[in-house]
């Protein structure tokens, strides 16, 4: 089986006036199906940019990115939206939920976009929330959930569509240590249970402690890519 994500000589250069700021410099990376991988590195090393490029949110200046066999460079805006919807789940740093929807509605949102029938949609959304330990809080809006609970909703939403890969950008950055630990354990468990691939950018050593593969980035380049023993 081929990699779920494949990056070949991916370069991303941002323009700041006359200055060209390289965020990614010839990155080669394969993520295999079922991987639970983390990317770390100092600020500005290119972690978030790499996730954005893999997620089809940003276009590389050069190089090829493919997700589940689909080359992103050839896709227009709508097709990229569809790829994100069908193949990629996102967990962002800042508890990115839709504030006017309840927890269960946030999860259902993705399923509605996928045209999942109502009964199946509601059942699956509630099941996902139960999976992430939010049973009883389904009808609360984000403002009435803690940061950790919001990130759990985001994880449930990311997994609801049964994506090929979940991209998580600093998911524990705004959480206290206990909540962060619980979240990363949850993601590791879901990875094992469902076989969904996770690629997580993080500074958090506790997250890295649970990973099976750790990638280091510096100045837009991968400087280290090692498989490590899962510590759970």
């Amino acid at each position: 089986m081929g990699p779920i994500v494949s990056c070949r000589r991916v370069t991303k250069i941002y323009r700041q006036g006359v200055l060209a700021v390289p965020a990614l410099q010839g990155v080669d990376l394969d993520i295999a199906t079922g991987d639970f991988a983390t990317i770390s590195g100092p600020s500005g090393s290119g972690k978030t940019t790499l996730l954005n490029v893999i997620g089809g949110l940003d276009k590389p200046s050069a190089g090829q990115v493919s997700v589940d066999g689909v080359a992103l460079a050839t896709l227009d805006k709508n097709a990229l939206s569809d790829i994100r919807l069908h193949k990629i789940g996102f967990v962002f740093q800042n508890y990115s939920l839709i504030p006017v929807l309840s927890a269960v509605e946030n999860v259902e949102f993705i399923l509605r976009l996928l045209d999942v029938p109502a009964a199946e949609r509601q059942a699956r959304a509630r099941e996902m929330l139960r999976e992430v330990g939010l049973e009883g809080l389904e009808d609360r809006r984000p403002a009435r959930l803690s940061g950790g609970q919001q990130q759990r909703v985001a994880v449930a939403r990311a997994l609801a569509s049964k994506p090929a890969i979940v991209l998580a950008d600093e998911p524990t950055a705004n959480l206290d240590s206990k909540t962060a630990e619980e979240l990363i354990v949850l993601m590791a468990r879901l990875n094992v249970q469902s076989g969904i691939t996770f690629l997580i950018s993080t500074h958090d050593a506790r997250v890295i402690a649970h990973t099976r593969r750790h990638i280091e980035m510096t100045d837009g380049r991968i400087t280290s890519d090692v498989a490590i023993k899962f510590a759970a």
Binding site: G55, D82, L85, F90, L113
Partner: peptide, 15 residues
């Protein structure tokens, strides 16, 4: 703005 970006990131088409 951030929320609209989120909707796009989640796969909601611009239309």
């Amino acid at each position: 703005t951030r929320e609209l970006g989120l909707l796009q990131a989640l796969g909601m088409r611009p239309i």
